[in-house]
């Protein structure tokens, strides 16, 4: 076969771009296990930095905050999204375009403005500086992602499966739990994973809304690396990377990462 110069150049360019994307991640992982911290190449492998990161009560506290926040925000957003999507995908009603826009608005509005608006409003109604404000902020932030993934799943869902269940005597609720949810399981897993990882890694909203004593991990990491330049920061960053990598694998297995991120706007099945 003739060597195609154009394709060859394209491939080279892509690999260089991939290296650019992966470079900071690889460096962080490398530094986190390097006994000599920032002096590369590493001369050995050490778990010292990880141990330091994972035994620091500040980081462990932050991790607990992020974990709780992520779980609560993910579950509430998905419950809300599931209900909304069932209505949006299956029924047409006046004002639907506006409802769609409103539900997508948290990702259409720049995070700076969205966070500022929540910050000033929650302060005004007396919820500022409480953990509630973080939960609300994160729930709303991940809601559109849940809606898009679940909408994509439900749009591909064959409603005759539900009719068949009703036909053999299942109630509406029973059908939802025995048929609909199990069938869109992969979409649901994708949605839960994506929402959790987005909440877990969120910085812009958390930095505006985090109350004293409830600092999520990314904000804690930011304050740490602002003043400290050592491999403990790398170990912490690597821990976050590893968790994200697990999420990426789950997403890839469930619906594919691309579909998970893009999802679909909840229209109506033609």
């Amino acid at each position: 076969m003739r060597i195609d110069f154009g394709t060859w150049m394209l491939r080279l360019f892509t690999y260089v771009a991939m290296a650019f994307l992966f470079f900071p991640i690889a460096i962080t992982l490398l530094v986190s296990i390097n006994p000599n911290e920032f002096i590369l190449p590493p001369t050995g492998v050490t778990m010292e930095w990880f141990r330091a990161a994972w035994t620091s009560s500040k980081f462990v506290d932050a991790m607990v905050v992020s974990l709780v926040l992520g779980i609560v925000a993910t579950l509430s957003a998905n419950a809300l999204a599931l209900l909304a999507v069932l209505a949006l995908v299956r029924y047409n009603f006046p004002g639907k375009a506006f409802v769609n826009l409103l539900i997508m608005s948290p990702i259409l509005i720049p995070a700076t403005i969205f966070s500022l608006a929540l910050y000033v409003f929650l302060a005004r109604i007396g919820l500022g500086g409480s953990i509630t404000s973080l939960v609300i902020g994160h729930t709303i932030h991940v809601l559109p992602f849940a809606v898009r993934i679940l909408a994509a799943s439900l749009q591909n869902f064959d409603t005759s499966l539900e009719e068949a269940a009703r036909n053999v005597g299942a109630s509406g609720t029973r059908t939802l739990f025995s048929i609909t949810l199990p069938v869109i399981k992969t979409g649901l897993i994708s949605s839960l994973t994506l929402c959790f990882v987005l909440s877990w890694n969120d910085f812009p909203i958390s930095v505006f809304l985090a109350p004293p004593g409830w600092t999520p991990l990314p904000v804690e990491l930011y304050s740490y690396i602002k003043y400290q330049y050592d491999a403990v920061g790398a170990a912490l960053a690597s821990s976050l990377i590893i968790l994200s990598a697990i999420a990426i694998i789950i997403l890839d297995r469930a619906t594919g990462i691309r579909r998970a991120i893009r999802g679909e706007a909840p229209g109506v099945k033609s």
Partner: peptide, 26 residues
């Protein structure tokens, strides 16, 4: 294709602070 897709999209799923840390080191 799937590995390239994953690499391209992974910055979206790895937190900003984490990525920034890597660039600081660089």
């Amino acid at each position: 294709k799937s590995i390239l897709m994953t690499l391209v999209l992974s910055p979206l799923l790895i937190g900003l602070v984490t990525l920034v840390y890597g660039w600081i080191v660089i």
